[in-house]
Amino acid sequence: MKKAAQPYTYGLRGTPTTQALEQALDAMEGSAGTILVPSGLAAITVPLLAFLGAGDHLLCVDSVYGPTRRFCQQMLQRTGVEVSYFHPSDDIESHMRPNTRVVFLEAPGSNTFEMLDVAAAAQKAHAGGALVMMDNTWATPLYFRPLQHGVDLSIHALTKYPAGHSDVMLGSVSATAQAYPRLREAQMALGVNAAPDDAYQTLRGLRTMPTRVERHGASALALAHWLEGHAMVARVLHPALPSFPGHDLYRRQFSGSTGLFGIVLGGMGDTEAAAFLDALELFGLGYSWGGFESLALQPDLSDRTVAHGPTDGTIIRLQIGLEDVEDLKDDLEKGFAAIARLR
């Protein structure tokens, strides 16, 4: 033990089960090393803490997951890290500073699904001396492998599609050979790792993940096409739709789509959104998508600084589960009928 020659010495440093999941994710991501942490949010905060310190600048896409922004504003800035945001369509070169150390990406954007050119952003970030991190939870490594596009650390909420049954909280960060040692060092210094039981359940989930995600994606796309023709829907926010503004970027970079997208209820506000959601019976109300069940909610976009939400109505975010598509259509029609009764 003094020579640290044994593969397993202390639970925090890893177990055969957690190592098996790390290796499986490395194979999926094409990464040199992966760490596991107790939640998707921890998979964001740990690498940010690992690579940022007082006096550094973090450049973050404005359509980022809300809790990511909260951590940046409440915790990172308190430690002396400068934080600024850019619109997904911006050329990040103009936003880079001499002290920019990390560029944080998410594509599609959280709740509004904006696309960005990942490889172009990574190239500009590296030219400015910054590391690139990306939240890849929406696409999963089945449909997009960030490291192949120049990203240094790929972040994933394993809580969602990999585990797949809404009964596990887990996150992962998969890194290049250059970034992994510092990432792993920070994980050990912070004292966070995953429980073997959670790792086992996620390994089990990986066995059916391709089949489940294919079904999620196909059902979501079928509903997205149907909703495009609905009189109460101003727009459908789904990157795989040809009508979506970022569709060309999606097709160039992604090999498939998953079950999460949004609709804009044309000319409507909070009252109509509440009536719509309250009328749903098959869809649950909830945040943590990626499980077997369909969910809906009205997202809060008030924290955006440049990538503001739509002005032509309110967004309803839909997570399409494994239920029958026709049953889901019938349930959504109940929501639209509830809006009609308000008029």
Score class of each variant (00 low, 15 high):
residue 104 F to L: 15
residue 128 G to H: 08
residue 310 P to S: 10
residue 184 R to G: 00
residue 274 A to H: 11
residue 287 Y to R: 14
residue 90 D to L: 10
residue 95 H to K: 10
residue 146 P to I: 04
residue 15 T to Q: 02
residue 89 S to P: 03
residue 198 D to I: 00
residue 182 R to V: 01
residue 286 G to A: 02
residue 243 S to K: 02
residue 101 R to Y: 06
residue 68 T to F: 09
residue 108 P to M: 05
residue 74 Q to G: 03
residue 214 E to Y: 10
residue 257 S to M: 11
residue 75 M to G: 05
residue 171 G to Q: 00
residue 73 Q to D: 15
residue 190 L to I: 15
residue 175 A to D: 01
residue 334 K to L: 15
residue 194 A to T: 05
residue 74 Q to E: 14
residue 258 T to Y: 00
residue 286 G to S: 04
residue 212 R to A: 05
residue 164 G to M: 11
residue 61 V to E: 08
residue 120 A to P: 03
residue 113 F to W: 08
residue 339 I to R: 02
residue 243 S to Q: 11
residue 59 L to G: 03
residue 297 L to P: 00
residue 171 G to D: 00
residue 126 H to F: 04
residue 304 R to C: 11
residue 267 G to S: 01
residue 185 E to K: 09
residue 158 L to F: 12
residue 58 L to R: 09
residue 243 S to R: 11
residue 112 T to W: 10
residue 80 G to T: 05
residue 200 Y to F: 12
residue 20 A to N: 03
residue 151 V to T: 07
residue 224 A to V: 04
residue 288 S to C: 05
residue 91 D to H: 05
residue 281 E to P: 00
residue 134 M to I: 13
residue 250 Y to P: 01
residue 333 E to G: 01
residue 27 A to F: 04
residue 286 G to C: 00
residue 215 R to F: 09
residue 317 R to A: 11
residue 210 P to Y: 06
residue 74 Q to D: 08
residue 172 S to Q: 05
residue 103 V to I: 00
residue 57 H to A: 14
residue 133 M to S: 02
residue 150 G to H: 09
residue 304 R to W: 13
residue 224 A to C: 01
residue 303 D to Q: 12
residue 73 Q to L: 15
residue 164 G to C: 10
residue 298 Q to Y: 09
residue 272 E to R: 01
residue 238 H to Y: 03
residue 314 T to C: 13
residue 151 V to R: 06
residue 103 V to N: 02
residue 188 M to E: 14
residue 156 H to F: 13
residue 280 L to A: 02
residue 110 S to P: 01
residue 124 K to C: 11
residue 53 G to P: 02
residue 31 S to Y: 06
residue 275 A to H: 06
residue 291 G to F: 13
residue 276 F to E: 01
residue 143 Y to K: 03
residue 317 R to W: 09
residue 39 S to T: 09
residue 28 M to I: 02
residue 238 H to G: 03
residue 92 I to G: 01
residue 205 G to I: 10
residue 63 S to G: 07
residue 230 H to P: 02
residue 90 D to R: 05
residue 214 E to V: 08
residue 85 Y to E: 05
residue 31 S to I: 04
residue 142 L to R: 03
residue 180 Y to F: 15
residue 333 E to A: 12
residue 174 S to E: 12
residue 188 M to L: 15
residue 156 H to W: 14
residue 203 L to E: 01
residue 318 L to F: 09
residue 165 H to C: 12
residue 125 A to S: 11
residue 279 A to F: 09
residue 214 E to P: 00
residue 186 A to S: 12
residue 342 L to P: 04
residue 208 T to Y: 08
residue 56 D to N: 12
residue 86 F to H: 09
residue 204 R to F: 14
residue 187 Q to D: 06
residue 68 T to M: 07
residue 44 I to L: 15
residue 110 S to C: 13
residue 176 T to W: 13
residue 212 R to F: 03
residue 114 E to Q: 14
residue 166 S to H: 14
residue 178 Q to P: 02
